[in-house]
Design a protein around this nucleic acid. Structure first.
Length: 166
DNA sequence: AAGTTCGACAACCGCGGCTAT
DNA sequence: AATAGCCGCGGTTGTCGAACT
Protein backbone atom coordinates (compact mmCIF):
# COMPACT_ATOMS: atom_id res chain seq x y z
CA UNK A 1 0.00 0.00 0.00
CA UNK A 2 2.58 2.51 -1.06
CA UNK A 3 0.15 5.31 -1.73
CA UNK A 4 -0.59 5.52 1.93
CA UNK A 5 3.00 5.82 2.91
CA UNK A 6 3.93 9.29 3.89
CA UNK A 7 6.53 11.06 1.81
CA UNK A 8 10.02 11.03 3.32
CA UNK A 9 9.73 14.20 5.35
CA UNK A 10 6.42 15.86 4.67
CA UNK A 11 5.63 18.53 7.14
CA UNK A 12 8.60 18.60 9.35
CA UNK A 13 9.45 22.18 9.99
CA UNK A 14 13.18 21.62 10.07
CA UNK A 15 15.18 18.66 8.87
CA UNK A 16 16.14 17.45 12.31
CA UNK A 17 18.31 14.40 11.96
CA UNK A 18 16.45 11.74 13.92
CA UNK A 19 18.50 9.46 16.06
CA UNK A 20 18.37 5.72 15.53
CA UNK A 21 19.79 2.62 17.12
CA UNK A 22 20.19 1.73 20.78
CA UNK A 23 18.63 4.00 23.36
CA UNK A 24 20.79 5.70 25.95
CA UNK A 25 19.94 5.89 29.64
CA UNK A 26 19.43 9.63 29.21
CA UNK A 27 16.87 9.12 26.45
CA UNK A 28 15.08 6.50 28.54
CA UNK A 29 14.91 8.97 31.38
CA UNK A 30 13.46 11.69 29.18
CA UNK A 31 10.84 9.42 27.69
CA UNK A 32 9.84 7.90 31.02
CA UNK A 33 9.63 11.28 32.72
CA UNK A 34 7.49 12.69 29.94
CA UNK A 35 5.08 9.77 29.89
CA UNK A 36 4.79 9.68 33.67
CA UNK A 37 3.83 13.31 33.60
CA UNK A 38 1.64 13.51 30.50
CA UNK A 39 0.75 9.95 29.66
CA UNK A 40 1.37 8.41 26.26
CA UNK A 41 -0.38 8.70 22.94
CA UNK A 42 0.09 11.09 20.00
CA UNK A 43 3.40 9.47 19.29
CA UNK A 44 3.97 11.77 16.36
CA UNK A 45 4.43 14.84 18.50
CA UNK A 46 5.62 13.18 21.69
CA UNK A 47 9.35 13.02 20.90
CA UNK A 48 9.59 16.75 20.31
CA UNK A 49 7.65 17.55 23.46
CA UNK A 50 9.78 15.15 25.45
CA UNK A 51 12.97 16.62 24.09
CA UNK A 52 13.95 13.54 22.14
CA UNK A 53 15.43 13.44 18.66
CA UNK A 54 13.69 10.20 17.80
CA UNK A 55 10.72 9.40 15.65
CA UNK A 56 7.46 8.66 17.42
CA UNK A 57 7.55 5.12 16.25
CA UNK A 58 10.87 4.52 17.95
CA UNK A 59 9.58 6.08 21.18
CA UNK A 60 6.45 3.96 21.11
CA UNK A 61 8.47 0.80 20.63
CA UNK A 62 10.87 1.69 23.41
CA UNK A 63 8.05 2.41 25.82
CA UNK A 64 5.94 -0.63 24.95
CA UNK A 65 8.78 -3.12 24.88
CA UNK A 66 11.13 -1.87 27.52
CA UNK A 67 10.18 1.06 29.71
CA UNK A 68 6.63 0.27 30.79
CA UNK A 69 6.75 -0.14 34.57
CA UNK A 70 4.94 -3.46 34.91
CA UNK A 71 6.58 -5.55 32.23
CA UNK A 72 8.38 -8.70 33.19
CA UNK A 73 11.74 -9.29 31.61
CA UNK A 74 14.17 -12.17 31.53
CA UNK A 75 13.78 -15.90 31.45
CA UNK A 76 10.43 -17.40 30.45
CA UNK A 77 9.03 -19.93 32.90
CA UNK A 78 7.96 -23.38 31.77
CA UNK A 79 4.34 -22.36 32.23
CA UNK A 80 4.81 -19.30 30.07
CA UNK A 81 6.48 -21.34 27.35
CA UNK A 82 3.66 -23.87 27.40
CA UNK A 83 1.12 -21.10 27.16
CA UNK A 84 2.91 -19.59 24.19
CA UNK A 85 3.08 -22.92 22.38
CA UNK A 86 -0.60 -23.61 23.03
CA UNK A 87 -1.67 -20.18 21.93
CA UNK A 88 0.53 -20.30 18.87
CA UNK A 89 -1.09 -23.57 17.87
CA UNK A 90 -4.39 -21.79 17.90
CA UNK A 91 -3.55 -18.23 16.93
CA UNK A 92 -0.50 -18.62 14.70
CA UNK A 93 1.95 -15.73 14.47
CA UNK A 94 -0.44 -13.25 16.05
CA UNK A 95 2.04 -12.16 18.66
CA UNK A 96 -0.01 -9.32 20.07
CA UNK A 97 -2.94 -11.67 20.62
CA UNK A 98 -0.63 -14.14 22.31
CA UNK A 99 0.88 -11.36 24.41
CA UNK A 100 -2.61 -10.42 25.56
CA UNK A 101 -2.71 -13.74 27.41
CA UNK A 102 0.64 -13.06 29.05
CA UNK A 103 -0.03 -9.59 30.40
CA UNK A 104 3.47 -8.88 31.63
CA UNK A 105 5.22 -9.95 28.45
CA UNK A 106 5.51 -7.95 25.24
CA UNK A 107 4.69 -9.22 21.79
CA UNK A 108 8.24 -8.47 20.68
CA UNK A 109 9.73 -10.50 23.49
CA UNK A 110 7.39 -13.42 22.84
CA UNK A 111 8.13 -13.30 19.14
CA UNK A 112 11.88 -13.28 19.79
CA UNK A 113 11.59 -16.13 22.26
CA UNK A 114 9.55 -18.14 19.81
CA UNK A 115 11.96 -17.59 16.95
CA UNK A 116 15.12 -18.26 18.92
CA UNK A 117 14.02 -21.01 21.30
CA UNK A 118 10.59 -22.53 20.98
CA UNK A 119 10.52 -22.94 17.22
CA UNK A 120 13.82 -24.78 17.27
CA UNK A 121 12.71 -26.91 20.19
CA UNK A 122 9.58 -28.03 18.36
CA UNK A 123 11.57 -28.82 15.23
CA UNK A 124 13.95 -30.90 17.33
CA UNK A 125 10.96 -32.81 18.67
CA UNK A 126 9.82 -33.47 15.13
CA UNK A 127 6.92 -31.04 15.31
CA UNK A 128 6.26 -28.59 12.55
CA UNK A 129 6.29 -25.20 14.30
CA UNK A 130 3.72 -23.76 11.92
CA UNK A 131 1.13 -26.54 11.99
CA UNK A 132 2.05 -27.96 15.40
CA UNK A 133 1.67 -31.39 13.87
CA UNK A 134 4.34 -34.05 13.51
CA UNK A 135 6.48 -32.91 10.64
CA UNK A 136 6.15 -34.94 7.42
CA UNK A 137 9.84 -35.83 7.21
CA UNK A 138 10.99 -36.52 10.73
CA UNK A 139 14.68 -36.87 11.29
CA UNK A 140 15.52 -40.53 10.68
CA UNK A 141 17.79 -41.11 13.64
CA UNK A 142 15.45 -40.71 16.60
CA UNK A 143 12.67 -42.93 15.49
CA UNK A 144 9.86 -44.48 17.46
CA UNK A 145 10.33 -42.78 20.77
CA UNK A 146 10.12 -39.44 19.05
CA UNK A 147 7.06 -40.26 17.01
CA UNK A 148 5.32 -41.35 20.16
CA UNK A 149 6.28 -38.06 21.78
CA UNK A 150 5.09 -36.04 18.84
CA UNK A 151 1.76 -37.84 18.70
CA UNK A 152 1.26 -37.22 22.36
CA UNK A 153 2.35 -33.62 22.08
CA UNK A 154 0.16 -33.06 19.07
CA UNK A 155 -2.91 -34.50 20.76
CA UNK A 156 -2.22 -32.41 23.81
CA UNK A 157 -1.82 -29.25 21.77
CA UNK A 158 -5.05 -29.83 19.90
CA UNK A 159 -6.94 -30.42 23.12
CA UNK A 160 -5.46 -27.33 24.70
CA UNK A 161 -6.13 -25.23 21.64
CA UNK A 162 -9.76 -26.30 21.94
CA UNK A 163 -9.77 -25.19 25.54
CA UNK A 164 -8.36 -21.80 24.61
CA UNK A 165 -11.01 -21.45 21.94
CA UNK A 166 -13.77 -22.02 24.48
C1' DA B 1 45.56 -14.08 22.13
C1' DA B 2 43.20 -13.19 17.94
C1' DG B 3 39.83 -14.22 14.70
C1' DT B 4 35.47 -16.33 13.54
C1' DT B 5 30.92 -18.10 14.23
C1' DC B 6 26.69 -18.36 16.71
C1' DG B 7 22.82 -17.02 19.58
C1' DA B 8 19.96 -13.69 21.79
C1' DC B 9 17.52 -9.74 21.72
C1' DA B 10 16.68 -4.75 20.73
C1' DA B 11 15.28 -1.95 17.22
C1' DC B 12 13.81 -0.81 12.51
C1' DC B 13 10.93 -1.13 8.31
C1' DG B 14 6.97 -1.64 5.60
C1' DC B 15 2.33 -2.62 5.49
C1' DG B 16 -2.63 -2.65 6.67
C1' DG B 17 -6.49 -1.10 9.56
C1' DC B 18 -8.87 2.55 11.42
C1' DT B 19 -10.42 7.24 11.96
C1' DA B 20 -10.88 12.07 10.95
C1' DT B 21 -11.55 15.33 7.48
C1' DA C 1 -16.61 8.36 -1.17
C1' DA C 2 -11.94 9.54 -1.26
C1' DT C 3 -7.86 10.81 0.96
C1' DA C 4 -4.42 11.66 4.54
C1' DG C 5 -2.41 10.58 8.70
C1' DC C 6 -1.80 7.88 12.95
C1' DC C 7 -1.21 3.63 15.21
C1' DG C 8 -0.15 -1.11 15.82
C1' DC C 9 1.51 -5.45 14.02
C1' DG C 10 4.62 -8.86 12.13
C1' DG C 11 8.81 -9.79 9.64
C1' DT C 12 13.46 -8.76 9.37
C1' DT C 13 17.91 -6.79 10.37
C1' DG C 14 21.70 -5.08 13.26
C1' DT C 15 24.47 -5.36 17.20
C1' DC C 16 26.84 -7.30 20.87
C1' DG C 17 28.59 -10.75 23.88
C1' DA C 18 29.70 -15.70 24.41
C1' DA C 19 31.54 -19.76 22.68
C1' DC C 20 34.48 -21.94 19.74
C1' DT C 21 38.67 -22.69 16.69
Amino acid sequence: MLSKMRPPSPNRKKEVRLKRGPWTAEEDKLLTAYIQKHGYGSWGSLPHKAGLERCGKSCRLRWINYLRPYIKRGKFSLEEEQTIIQLHAFLGNRWSAIAAHLPKRTDNEIKNHWNTHLKKRLIKMGIDPMTHKPSTSPSPKNGSNLSHMTQWESARLEAEARLVRE
